[in-house]
Design a protein around this nucleic acid. Structure first.
Lengths: 226, 226
DNA sequence: CAGGCCGATCTTACAACGTACGATCTGCCT
DNA sequence: AGGCAGATCGTACGTTGTAAGATCGGCCTG
């Protein structure tokens, strides 16, 4: 009746466990003792492989970025990239968004990481390379990176919070709101509200692709012809 | 030697104190006991005016949004809005960005707020109204809101983290990085790095205005003529 | 003026967290 | 067998959010 030996701890196993917890119960549930329990060990054992909790969180970002790299650079879905630069960049953005959709806790972490893990640079380097090949100046490429990055990471807010609408407000207050904000009411009324695979009620795939196209076309118009 | 009577607690005074702490020492320093100390009272006294810490944080968002409303809607710098819709929207965006620059901890909070305070709707309602007057469809206005919102809130990341460069890496490792990411190196080299009034090293005013113009012009091109 | 009532504040206490410090265990080399 | 070093654990402390109830102070009523 010897207890089955556990697999040895490692930074990778720890990060995987943390990601699993974050996916299942949210980022706030990622705690030292919680991760340890998931790995059937004590909290203090983690510290041999991870400096402290801040670095564990940075590690989470690293895992997500690795996932982005795997699905957009190392083996992109439609084979190697070719054709218009916009199609290449668009495919990568949609891939990155897919990863974020699988890990809804990630965008704020990535956007607000105090320490940027080095693999992040690979993503940006690839994007800049594609743009430079398409005739971009470094300055324009830099600005493009910012525009694209803030799109992928910022597309998370809930404009019309369902909690507020359903729970805490009476019908009277709701009607008052609709009266005070007629335009927003009109927008909300015209929404399909099929929030199945989206980060928020009004963050649908079509909308993301629209804004993405807007930015990419705008950049393309500013690009010196090649 | 009677102790000078303290001003009575109130939700507003509590929120103001919390904002002051966040501005001075960062969001992590906003703690129940800390806020209480600032107000010369005990931590538990706050709970009479604020439900719990989550609602206190929501209150912080509320304060920031109020500041945005005050500086962009109630008394905008250049008098009431007129002229091209892009100029109106641009002025409001720059005003909102100004507020965020004064409270660098705010963007992630606003972007990730679990509960959207109602005054947020006023900002969006005003933006949509301006666009509808300019001939936008509700659908286009909705998408525009998303594009603009993610710009203002997402423009915060540090692409090239100064901590990494200066501290933890040896010169060899630094050279290796520069070799692995030549394009990023070129961009970094061409940067002025006067990060005085910006949220991050490569988040300058000019760059923000560039991306903003890109989005606004793109939207304008899609707008039905009036 | 006495008594009581109620909104506002405080005291105490507890669970959960991150983690410093040192003890312990385990496999390998001599 | 002896010991050495890498890996894991036990204990304990400070800090956090907050539940439960005690206490204060001003105002109204009798």
């Amino acid at each position: 009746m010897t207890r089955t030996a556990r697999a040895p701890l490692s930074r990778e196993r720890i990060l995987d466990a943390a990601v699993a917890i974050a996916d299942a119960e949210g980022l706030a549930a990622v705690t030292m003792r919680g991760v340890a329990q998931q790995l059937d060990c004590e909290a203090m054992s983690l510290y041999y492989h991870v400096k402290d909790k801040a670095q564990l969180v940075t590690g989470l970002v690293e895992v997500i970025i690795d996932e982005v790299i795997a699905t957009t650079l190392d083996n992109p879905p439609g084979g190697p990239q070719a054709g218009d630069w916009r199609d290449v960049v668009r495919a990568r953005c949609l891939g990155a968004r897919h990863v974020m959709l699988r890990h809804p806790w990630a965008p704020p972490l990535v956007a607000n990481a105090d320490q940027v893990p080095p693999n992040t640079y690979r993503v940006f380097e690839a994007l800049v390379a594609t743009m430079i090949e398409a005739g971009f100046s470094y300055d324009l490429a830099h600005r493009a990176i910012h525009a694209i990055g803030s799109m992928i990471l910022g597309f998370t807010q809930e404009l019309f919070d369902p909690n507020v609408d359903t729970d805490e407000l009476s019908d009277d207050e709701l009607a008052a709101l609709a009266g005070a904000f007629p335009h927003l009411g009109a927008i909300a009324a015209s929404q399909p509200h099929d929030a199945a695979q989206s980060l928020s009620v009004c963050d649908t795939q079509a909308e993301f692709e629209f804004t993405l196209g807007l930015v990419l076309d705008g950049l393309d118009a500013l690009r010196p012809a090649v």
